[in-house]
Design a protein around this nucleic acid. Structure first.
Lengths: 201, 201
DNA sequence: CAAACTTACTAAACAGTGTTCAGTATTTAA
DNA sequence: TTAAATACTGAACACTGTTTAGTAAGTTTG
């Protein structure tokens, strides 16, 4: 039955159309401006149509989040070039910070916003988990040179460190330091370096 | 002129009434349920009245935030009992984590939500700044026993660490670890201990 | 081919949000 | 007692996410 196949295909295409438009608006105009109605306007369909392809806004955001994680994974894949685990960890941490600082809205979606985490009663947060596993593996590999006693606790700590740096900045809690925009990122990277040094034996 | 005095007093009382109601709803039902209309309902005034006392919702949230910082300051005042700077830092970090985990909505307001930071073009974020200064002082005092080279960078790092731990949890990014609720907080406190040990020489 | 069924889509509405403004009482001043 | 200032509100505006009834087109069947 070729018709069912085509329908299936068209359904996927429609999902892509919606997803791409949403991602576009999200990256360009941020979370606030990305409403169902605005997305619908952009793809020239009625708002109700979107609900034929996504259960609700959370499910749509969940999809965006997954794509964002793929972006970050690629950043890691291309940017982590060192052979040594500690150096890998250092690279990873810096790439993470740079990614967060240059894609604040995507960062929101992945690590700050509550909404997409409600979708489907948290489908195990697959994309997030695999990114975390990646970190766990690096730490596992460098465990002999790290001061961590527990791998998971260590992974969580280093993640918390970089997330803390990025999210405080992204949410404007570091404005009081009154540093020029570009100096700020240098400072964050310096903090990362310092942290890696401190956890290395 | 006694009348002007009374009017002034009544104005302050009204602000208090609004603020208290808002804080109540915020702590009890969270950010989402705390709408201008709901607050107005609670104090039995029209929504428009609130706008006679607060420019917009951001300004109201700003007020709530300031009060939340006072709560945290008191937690520090009562809980930091050690004489030694390093121990003070350890206590402070743990109190911070505990505060965040037991008051997730207030924590949101203070360190995560974007809204209140827009009020009045960020009035220097006075309450936040003084809390940060408190941290800076402790770190300054213990600088000889700390591995930090720069006080500000050190303060930012340790803040980022605890904020990272709390905010990842508060926003449900640690669910994948599949830990029982109470074990989680123990893990966070263990991470804090580990961090303090690592930055101490 | 025509009739019956199925799918894809939308207009309109519902209930909620923050916010503004004209108008009404009440209180104060002249 | 009248004029002016103050405190407050009902109703509206422009949004939001979401649901539903209805339409128009495509597909299958007799």
């Amino acid at each position: 039955m070729g018709i069912t196949d085509r329908k299936e295909r068209e359904k996927l295409e429609m999902r892509r159309l919606i997803m791409d438009a949403a991602m576009d608006m999200f990256v360009k105009d941020g979370y606030e401006k990305t409403s169902i109605r605005n997305i619908a306007d952009k793809i020239e369909y009625s708002p109700a149509t979107i609900y034929l392809y996504y259960k609700d806004k959370d499910e749509l955001l969940w999809g965006l989040q997954t794509e964002a994680f793929e972006k970050l994974a690629e950043v890691f894949r291309e940017g982590i070039t060192a052979a040594e685990p500690i150096e890998q960890l250092r690279q990873m941490a810096k790439l993470y910070v740079e990614f967060g600082m240059s894609n604040p809205d995507l960062y929101d979606l992945m690590f700050i916003l509550r909404s997409p985490m409600n979708a489907e009663k948290n489908e195990e947060w697959k994309s997030g988990s695999s990114a975390f596993q990646f970190l766990v593996n690096i730490i596992q590999a460098g465990m002999d040179k790290l001061k961590y006693e527990d791998v998971t606790l260590g992974a969580m700590s280093s993640w918390a460190m970089v997330h803390g740096l990025v999210s405080l900045n992204v949410r404007g809690r570091c404005k009081m330091l009154e540093l020029p925009e570009d100096k700020l990122q240098d400072m964050l990277l310096a903090a990362v370096d310092q942290y890696i040094d401190n956890i290395t034996r």
